[in-house]
Measured scan of single mutants.
Amino acid sequence: SHFELRVGTITLHFDNISEELAEELEKLAKNGVHADEIRRWWEEWLK
């Protein structure tokens, strides 16, 4: 499923992401983690 995450002024787009993972990314964003860090985390997870 597709997921969009708003982090400050940036909107990150994720394809084929589980609800659980989407929730984890939302938690990171709410805790003030920068969009670049979240994207890096996601790319690492995909490997």
Rank of each mutant, 00 (worst) to 15 (best):
W42S: 06
E19V: 14
E24F: 13
H13C: 08
R40T: 09
V7I: 10
W42L: 08
H34K: 13
A35G: 06
L12F: 06
L25Q: 00
H34S: 15
A22H: 04
V7G: 00
D36Y: 02
E20K: 12
E19I: 14
W42G: 05
K47Q: 14
D36I: 09
I10W: 00
A35Q: 06
I38H: 01
E19K: 15
E20V: 08
L25C: 02
L46N: 11
L25A: 04
F3N: 02
K27T: 11
S1V: 11
W42D: 00
K30E: 11
E26Q: 13
I38P: 01
E26H: 15
R39P: 02
D36E: 11
S1Y: 05
E26W: 07
K47D: 07
A29G: 04
L25I: 07
L28P: 00
K27R: 11
R6T: 15
D36W: 02
E43H: 12
E20F: 08
A29H: 03
N16R: 02
G32Q: 05
I38M: 03
W41V: 14
R6F: 04
G32S: 06
N16E: 05
A35V: 14
T11A: 03
A35H: 06
W45L: 08
F14V: 02
D36K: 07
E20A: 12
W45F: 11
D15C: 09
D36N: 10
N16D: 09
G32M: 09
E4C: 02
D36S: 10
H13N: 05
L46E: 10
H2D: 14
T11I: 14
L21E: 09
H13K: 06
S1M: 15
E37K: 07
T11H: 05
L46V: 13
A29F: 04
K47F: 06
L46M: 14
N31E: 12
D15H: 14
E44V: 07
F3G: 04
V33I: 12
L25V: 05
W45T: 09
A35E: 07
G8N: 02
F14D: 00
L5A: 02
E4L: 03
L12V: 04
R40Q: 11
L28N: 02
L28S: 02
V7N: 01
F3I: 06
G32K: 04
F3L: 15
L5T: 03
F3T: 02
L28M: 15
I17R: 00
E23I: 15
E19Y: 12
W42C: 08
A22F: 14
I38T: 02
K27G: 11
E24T: 14
H13S: 06
E23Y: 12
K27N: 12
L5K: 03
E24D: 09
V7S: 01
L21P: 01
L5F: 01
A22D: 01
G32V: 08
L21G: 05
K27E: 12
T11W: 04
K27A: 13
A29P: 02
F14K: 00
F14H: 00
H13W: 09
W41Y: 14
V7H: 01
E37N: 09
R39W: 15
L21A: 10
R39E: 12
R6L: 15
S18E: 04
G8A: 02
S18V: 04
W41S: 07
I17M: 05
L5E: 02
G32R: 04
R39Q: 12
V7K: 00
E4H: 05
A35Y: 07
L5M: 07
E20L: 06
K30M: 13
L25N: 00
L25R: 00
E19G: 11
W45S: 09
S1H: 15
H34P: 14
G8I: 04
E4W: 03
E37Y: 08
H2T: 02
E44Y: 09
L12M: 09
W42E: 02
H2V: 02
R40S: 10
S18Q: 04
D15S: 08
R6K: 15
E43V: 08
H34A: 12
I38L: 07
E24V: 10
T9P: 11
L21H: 06
H34W: 08
E23C: 03
R39H: 09
E26F: 09
T11S: 05
S18I: 04
H2M: 03
R40V: 05
E26N: 11
E37D: 13
V33M: 15
R40G: 08
F3Y: 05
E44K: 07
K27H: 10
E19W: 14
A35W: 07
K30Y: 08
D36T: 08
A29Q: 04
K30T: 09
F14A: 01
H2Q: 05
G8E: 03
E37P: 03
W45Y: 15
V7Y: 03
I38F: 07
W45C: 06
I10N: 03
E4D: 03
A29C: 04
N31Y: 06
G8P: 00
N31G: 11
D36P: 06
S18D: 07
L46K: 11
A29N: 05
D36H: 11
R39L: 15
H2F: 04
L28C: 06
L12E: 01
R40N: 12
R39I: 15
H2E: 08
W41G: 02
I10M: 03
S1D: 15
I10Y: 01
L12A: 00
G8W: 03
L46R: 07
R39Y: 13
G32P: 04
R40K: 13
E37F: 07
K30F: 08
I10S: 05
F14G: 01
T9E: 15
E44C: 03
T11M: 06
I38G: 01
T9I: 09
L46T: 09
A22K: 15
L12T: 00
V33H: 12
N31L: 12
H2L: 01
L21M: 14
V33P: 04
H13G: 04
E23R: 15
W42A: 13
E44M: 10
A35I: 10
E43D: 11
W42Q: 03
T9Q: 12
V7C: 04
K30Q: 13
L5C: 03
E4K: 01
R39T: 13
H34F: 12
A22P: 01
F3H: 05
G8S: 01
I17C: 03
I38V: 07
L12C: 01
W45N: 09
V33N: 10
I38E: 01
E43Y: 09
E23G: 14
A29M: 05
I38C: 03
V33R: 12
I38R: 01
H13F: 10
L5D: 02
V33Q: 12
E26A: 12
L25T: 00
I17N: 01
L28Y: 05
E43F: 09
E24R: 13
L21Y: 04
F3K: 03
T11L: 07
